[in-house]
Amino acid sequence: MKVSIGDVVLPGDYFDEISTDNAKSRVVIGPGLRKEEDHVYITKAGVLKKKNPHTYWIDSYQKRVDIGGSTTAALSYLSFEGATKKNRPEVQVGDIIYAKLVIASKDMEPELVCIDSFGHKGRLGVLTDGFVFKCSINLIRKILSPQCPLLESLKNEWPFELAAGMNGRIWIKANSMKETIALGNAVLGAEFMSQEEIKKMSNNISATLAGHVY
């Protein structure tokens, strides 16, 4: 079936708007789209989106990120700030790492680093204490989006740290167990809420929490 921007699409649908665009400009075909001979075909179910000038993708629901590897990723000892062969960083098996991918190719083992290209660690590195839970990728994208009021409204209520990874894992750390649980529930509860509902929920949670703490 032929579809256009904003439509709900299924795998096997195709759309033609790209080919009719100005041929000189660069077109970016994002996740969920695949070019085959004559048309651009859709490979995931969701909503077809476009960002000007020529970026197209499918907004779909999924729990697993396609980083090109179902296998384990490599993390080098030397990919930490100030690490040398003699001065090894303190990383144990089972530690939670906030890292980014340098290689994400379909045919090679993915590789992680905890430094940027200047050799600084920034916020990357081992995350100590805290609590990790899994969620869908859509939720990660949702809370990371600048329009989402969740973290904006929660951060004024009580102090906490949060790291949301695009692999569907969120790490949170707050001063007390109660605050951690409240934060975790707030994040998970926001998955299917609109912006107004999220604001209302954050207020509710902070009010309840305040009632318990004092």
């Binding site: 299924l10 795998p11 096997g12 969920g32 695949r34 075909y41 490979t43 995931k44 179910a45 779909s60 629901y61 999924q62 729990k63 697993r64």
Partner: peptide
């Protein structure tokens, strides 16, 4: 469809 696996068609 729900898992988000790339599909040729449904």
């Amino acid at each position: 469809i729900n898992s988000g696996v790339g599909m040729r068609h449904v």
